[in-house]
Design a protein around this nucleic acid. Structure first.
Lengths: 184, 184
DNA sequence: AAAAAATGTCACATATTTGAGAAAAAAGTC
DNA sequence: GACTTTTTTCTCAAATATGTGACATTTTTT
């Protein structure tokens, strides 16, 4: 059962993902509470945005970490990290977008960005390991593969939302495209 | 040389791409004009947003159409459509996002969406042709391949913006990943 | 250099968004 | 059923965003 605080951050993540300056009224509406209640949990917009970032980070970190430690085979690990990211949904893609945009949350940075880096570096290091062991092509740079991976995650999330791709197939398709697109 | 109107819509596309409800002040700033001047060209926010949509549509339509009619070989055509989309930059990805989001521009729809569909259907029909002629795998649905393509375009655009991937490589990498990711 | 066009500056009226207090209503808890 | 906690309702003041008029200044055209 979700508590009110969570209901609000969840709603905010959905809304802010599509419109970062949306009125808090809209967020409250989506969370099915009054704006007044929202303000009882979050003093102001900044506070709420930070809470969203924190929630997204925790969620992604948890999911990625769990996979990272469970698989020794790097390819298998990479595959399951993809699935974990897809399961995180907008939390993953929004978080990624936030940290690669120029004009936002320059106030926070440092502490918050460090956490983000730790999580996303697990992607990077896995990619590098795969390249070192000649399991994927070296024709592509690790940076590109990282971008590609998040691009495919986003495609998967959009597919799910649009409903144009059968839900059972999404992960299968995503891994098919990603693996073939980077294998030697 | 860009005229003021274009400077404003270009700035607005950049800004709105990241924050659809950003104050017009921010847009004016980016366009290097006063808010007063912005309002001389666009009566209100709605007017500006519509102008952006129009500009994005024209730009994408022009680029995609040109490629579509120049290549008879579907694979070659597909490849160059990818490059054209990447060249359109945020105009492409933002437009796509706008039309696949739930909560926006429900006012315009119809007329405006029709134009969008015409352009993006050229992607779809090319994908279907490729599948019909057994040039790409049938294990993936056409809808997924469409999503994947725009996902890779977005990855390419993000790569360019971040500067982490050498500019000369971006298109090459994008096509490498996309083609391998869908070929039989 | 004069005229015309475009842009900037300043001021102002509205509209919207924001944040919070006080008391009533609803939901949980024992 | 009495009690506590949470949420809603209603309120209001402050802050921010929006759109426009009047006039000065700059830039472009002729």
């Amino acid at each position: 059962m979700k508590n009110t605080r969570q209901k609000i951050t969840d709603a905010a993540i959905e809304i802010f993902n599509e419109d970062l300056s949306a009125p808090l009224e809209i967020v409250a509406e989506k969370a099915e509470v009054t704006r007044r209640t929202l303000h009882r949990y979050f003093t102001d917009r900044q506070d709420l945005v930070l809470a969203c970032q924190f929630a997204m980070q925790e969620s992604c970190k948890k999911a990625i970490d769990a996979v990272y430690t469970s698989y020794t085979d790097p390819l298998e690990r990479f595959e399951n990290m993809l699935y974990a990211a897809i399961d995180c949904g907008v939390k993953f893609s929004f978080l990624h977008r936030m940290h690669n945009n120029d004009r936002h949350q320059h106030t926070v940075k440092d502490e918050n960005c460090k956490k983000y880096d730790v999580t996303f570096n697990k992607f990077k290091s896995t990619i590098e390991e795969l390249q070192r062991k000649d399991l994927i092509t070296k024709e592509l740079s690790a940076e590109w593969i990282e971008m590609l991976s998040t691009g495919i995650v986003t495609a998967a999330i959009n597919s799910e939302k649009s409903g144009n791709v059968a839900k059972i197939n999404i992960k299968k398709f995503a891994w098919y495209s990603l693996s073939k697109g980077i294998l030697v």
